[in-house]
Nucleic acid binder design. Sequence first.
DNA 1: TTGTTGACTCCCG
DNA 2: CCGGGAGCCAACA
Length: 128
Amino acid sequence: MARDTTGVSPPERKPPSFYDRVYALVRQVPRGSVVTYGQVAVLLGSPTAARAVGYALNALPAENDVPWWRVINQKGAISLKNRGSNADLQRALLEHEGLVFREDGRCDLRRYRWWPDGDDARSAQLYS
DNA sequence: TTGTTGACTCCCG
DNA sequence: CCGGGAGCCAACA
């Protein structure tokens, strides 16, 4: 409806992409908390798009305001071991925020997992 | 439009 | 608990 008849081209005519929605959500994760790839997918309405979430973070530019290090896998571990040494950086950043990792490289998700406020959180809680 | 790829998960043994 | 295989989704060539 209400097609743009002003002739003016808005700076953002395109709807927010899946990537943008991932970034927006991750930006809400408070310091000291984490979310999982699958969880982000659930919160975005695509419970099986966990891989796409990781892909989105991988596409982040060098400079950004997204706390990407607060996204870990469902096991509570860092999922960057096969990629670069950024895995060590991510763990260091999380430990700096107070998270504690076990000897096996995993942390207690039940304790650190964050959920957004609002109605969306309700259905999401069911997932966990 | 089809095929490929990947910072994931789940299901089986 | 661990390893292997299949499924799913979005972006890109």
